[in-house]
Each structure stands twice: as C-alpha cells, then as structure tokens.
C-alpha cells in the first residue's frame, strides 16, 4: 500500500482516544476519528480501542455500533480490537452478566481467580488487575515472540469456555489452544493475550502504551495485507 492506510478509529465513548490516535498516526495511518456508526464503510483498516467497563462498551453496541461492527468483522478489512475492543467480540462477560457483546467469537470473558499464587522470583502475591508489562508466547511475527506489552485488566477472554465450566487452572488451558488464540501470556495462569482469525486481530494489551513494541505492532498491522494479519 503506497498511501497511508485510511484507518477508522471507532469511538465507542469509552474515554480518551488521543493516545491511540497519536500512536496510529505515528505508525503511518491516516486516522479518521469515527463517532458515527453508519460511516464505518470503505476504510483500509478499522481499530476498535477501549478501556473501562464491558457494560459501557455493550451500551455503545446497543446505541448503533453492533450491526456495522458485525458487518465489518464478516468482511475483509483488517480490524484491530484493543482491550475492551477484544472483549466485546464475545457474547458475555462476568464483569456485566446482563450486557451483550458481539458474540463473534465463541466463549466468554472471565475474571481472573482471586488466588493467583506468587511471583516465583520475588515471592510477592500476584494481583488483580493484571497491571504492567508481560511477555507473549506467540508464533505470530506480527506480535513478536517474547515481546513485552503493557496490560491492565481484571478480565480475560476465555475462548470456547461454556458458561458454568470449571475455573481455569494453573496450566495451559484448552482456551489457549484454540486455533484463534494467537498469543499466550501468564499471570498465575495462562490466558489468551491476542486472538487472530482472518482479517481480525484482537489484543488484550495496549499497543499505544507499549513504547517501541507497541509502535512496531501497529506499523506491522498497517502494512499487513488483508487476510494476512
């Protein structure tokens, strides 16, 4: 792609999009701030950022974003979901049982268990929110094996877990073996830190807060051919 990819920055009303917009711009995107769901057409890239609560994101879906986002997800435009933008791909979250997500990915969003054990090197108890820089295990060259990204979340995407199933254990769960799970991180347990399926890439961490690693990921996302993210 020779020209800067026209990139829709979907504004679900979940807070300040300033840093995402600046990071995308610095990575080479022509960023279009989009607050109007009907305008989500004809872009080269779509980015769905989000911080805060699943409930508020679900409310934005009800307010008009559901249909255009589902249409985009069934299309061929590369789409990047960030944090709540990843969690909203699922039908439901333990954070807000009454709220309805997109239901595009199988599974649900779950809270980290109360007792996650201790940091093996310092002995400190592991905390929720999972806050800070964590390292990915991934085969994706776009995400980068061993790269550190900044996470801040209390809930994680559990691919394919049925409602009422057992709490995740301390080992690699079936969820992280799901074909759409593109990266695994550990915080007392293994969880899906990124998922990829066709033109969709969704990450639990914040590339816009992840310094050089985040900038590199955004550049690669903008350069990747459609269908190959």
């Amino acid at each position: 792609m020779s020209a800067a990819p026209r990139t829709a920055l979907v504004d679900l009303g979940l807070g300040n999009l300033h840093s995402v917009a600046r990071s995308l711009g610095a990575a080479g995107a022509d960023v279009v701030h989009l607050a109007e769901p009907a305008a989500l057409k004809g872009f080269d890239r779509i980015v769905v950022p989000g911080q805060g609560a699943f409930r508020d994101g679900a409310a934005a879906l009800e307010a008009g974003w559901r249909a255009p986002l589902l249409e985009a997800l069934h299309g061929s435009t590369p789409l990047l979901g960030i944090c709540i933008g990843m969690q909203l791909l699922f039908a439901e979250s333990e954070e807000a049982p009454e709220a309805r997500g997109l239901g595009f990915m199988p599974g649900r969003v779950r809270r980290f268990p109360r007792d996650l054990g201790r940091d093996p090197k310092t002995g400190a108890p592991l905390k929720v929110p999972h806050m800070g820089w964590n390292q990915l295990r991934t085969a994706s060259s776009l995400l980068g094996e061993g790269a550190y990204y900044y996470f801040v979340h209390s809930y994680f995407c559990d691919l394919e877990a049925a409602p009422g199933s057992d709490a995740p254990g301390d080992t690699v769960t079936d969820s992280t073996r799901h074909p759409a799970c593109a990266a695994v991180a550990h915080h007392g347990m293994a969880f899906c830190a990124a998922l990829a399926q066709g033109p969709l890439l969704a990450v639990q961490f914040h590339p816009e807060k992840s310094h050089q690693a985040g900038a590199r990921l955004l550049r690669r996302f903008l350069l990747a051919e459609a269908e190959a993210v």
Binding site: D119, P120, T122, M131, G132, N134, Y148, F151, H186
Partner: peptide, 8 residues
Amino acid sequence: MLARRIIP
C-alpha cells in the same frame, strides 16, 4: 510472566 515495574 508479569515484569516488576520501575517508575520514575
């Protein structure tokens, strides 16, 4: 695994 953070 989560890295310990250094904050100036």
